[in-house]
Simulated scan of single mutants.
Amino acid sequence: MANHQSSKKRIRQDEKKRLENKYYAKTMRNALKKLRAATEKEAAVAELPKVTSMIDRLAKKNVIHKNKASNLKASLASHVNKL
């Protein structure tokens, strides 16, 4: 267990960040599922920029890796184009 005040504070901060990152990552995964489940091309095309923006923001905050973000965006774009 931590002995110093600063290390106790660091533990509290890390827990808050972990929960926040977990929430945003789950939100992104739900958006991905919704986009992949879309059957109408117009709806998917309208939703793609929002999801892409969300992925970019999470990569910028290091919630997900930048290469994973790139791979997700590419696969989503190809999925929407196939509709």
Rank of each mutant, 00 (worst) to 15 (best):
K9G: 02
K66P: 13
K17V: 06
K41I: 11
L48D: 09
N21Q: 00
K26Y: 06
A74F: 09
K26F: 15
K8G: 07
A43P: 00
V80H: 04
R36F: 15
R57Q: 12
H65S: 14
K34I: 06
D14K: 01
L19G: 03
M54S: 02
V51K: 01
A37Y: 07
A25P: 06
K16H: 13
A59L: 07
K68G: 11
A2R: 04
K68L: 15
V51Q: 01
R18W: 09
D56K: 05
K33L: 12
K82V: 12
Y23Q: 13
T52S: 10
S78F: 06
K73P: 13
R36H: 14
V63F: 08
P49S: 12
A31H: 01
E20P: 03
Q13A: 09
M28Y: 09
A31F: 01
N67Y: 03
S6D: 01
K16V: 13
R12A: 15
N30C: 12
A44H: 00
H79C: 02
S6T: 09
E40M: 10
S75P: 14
A31Y: 00
E47P: 04
A46C: 11
A38I: 03
I55M: 07
K73S: 09
A25L: 11
M1C: 03
A74W: 02
S7E: 09
M28V: 12
K26L: 15
N62K: 15
R10T: 09
Y23P: 07
N30A: 10
K33M: 12
A38G: 07
N71G: 13
A74Q: 14
K26T: 15
I55V: 15
K9P: 00
L72H: 07
M28N: 08
K9S: 14
S78V: 12
E47T: 11
K26G: 14
S6C: 05
A77C: 07
N67Q: 05
Q13E: 04
A37T: 11
Y23M: 10
N71I: 08
V80S: 00
D14I: 12
S70F: 03
N71Y: 08
N81T: 09
N81A: 15
K82A: 13
K82I: 14
T52R: 02
A46M: 05
M28A: 10
R29L: 11
A59F: 03
Y24G: 04
K41C: 11
H79R: 02
N62M: 13
K17F: 10
A46I: 07
V45F: 03
R57H: 09
E42C: 10
T39G: 14
A31P: 06
N30D: 11
Q13H: 08
K26I: 09
T27A: 15
K16F: 15
H79V: 06
A37V: 08
A31S: 14
D56R: 01
L72G: 11
S70I: 00
D14T: 10
V45T: 13
Y23L: 11
A2S: 03
L32T: 04
H79Q: 06
L58M: 01
E40C: 10
P49T: 13
K17E: 09
S70A: 13
H4I: 13
A46V: 12
I11C: 11
H65Q: 14
K16Q: 14
L32D: 04
K50P: 03
H79K: 10
M1D: 01
Q13N: 03
L76Q: 00
D14Q: 09
I55Q: 02
